[in-house]
Write a protein that binds this DNA or RNA. Sequence first.
DNA 1: TATGAATGATACCAACTTAGTATCATTTTG
DNA 2: CAAAATGATACTAAGTTGGTATCATTCATA
Lengths: 137, 137
Amino acid sequence: MNGKLITRDTDYAVRALVYIFNSKERIVSASELVDELKIPRPFLRKILQKLSKAGILKAYKGKGGGFQLTVAAKKVSLIGLIELFQGPVKLTECLFKKKPCPNMKVCPLRKKLQGIEKIVVKELESIKLNLLFDSKL
Amino acid sequence: MNGKLITRDTDYAVRALVYIFNSKERIVSASELVDELKIPRPFLRKILQKLSKAGILKAYKGKGGGFQLTVAAKKVSLIGLIELFQGPVKLTECLFKKKPCPNMKVCPLRKKLQGIEKIVVKELESIKLNLLFDSKL
DNA sequence: TATGAATGATACCAACTTAGTATCATTTTG
DNA sequence: CAAAATGATACTAAGTTGGTATCATTCATA
Ligand code: FES
Ligand code: FES
């Protein structure tokens, strides 16, 4: 199977955030993150931009610029990042892709799987970033 | 997100098994299944072959041939099918793909996600096929 | 025993997603 | 103005999924 819960984007994002957190109030540049975390530069930059657009990082342009955590960052849970990079969590999707499925309501398989999905979402919600900040990656 | 728990293979397989179950002791041919379930023929055949190799269906070759459920079939759980078609369930995979990750043991993110994985697996194990056989798809 | 209806085995192909690149514009410090 | 940083965006490569195509084998039955 391969129904990964988190993709590379999200994983890199977590690492970057943890690193930035550990740098306290310092402004951390993409270059520094590339060096430290060995993440391919252009890919990381894309990720940082997304985090900054989402209000999780504050970006400073120009020489000496970089990123800092916003206050919001500490409240973000893993599911927030997942949704940001991978879209809304849906582990289960009806077979009949386009047309609305007639069995949607009663389909027992779907019902079961949706139950599982709910559990997963709740768990992901409970993983706040500051849980991860403590122990380093 | 798109970390689907079950792919098309598996879903089709469930449908086919339910249909065959409802046909009681009759031998059901691939053609009949194609007509009834509107699944693309060659794809369905591949799926049926897999089910038969796995001992979930018994195949009868030649004119008048087709498939029947084996006794084993009723004991199969959803996770059995998932593993058959999609391989072992692993919702979480370490970032450092190839090389064994040094943080494997302590990485808090991984630990959390593996916890979720365990829950999911347990749930999938609990979905036995005969649960689905009752209400039709 | 020949025929046709069925499955077995396998190799191939197309669309989609994920991971990653490449380029150029804009802002800021010195 | 020059250098160092981010912003925006378009492109490419590799892998996975969903699906085809072909040919071989088996079996019932006329
Ligand atoms: S088949 Fe559409 S919901 Fe079950
Ligand atoms: S990074 Fe390898 S397990 Fe967390």
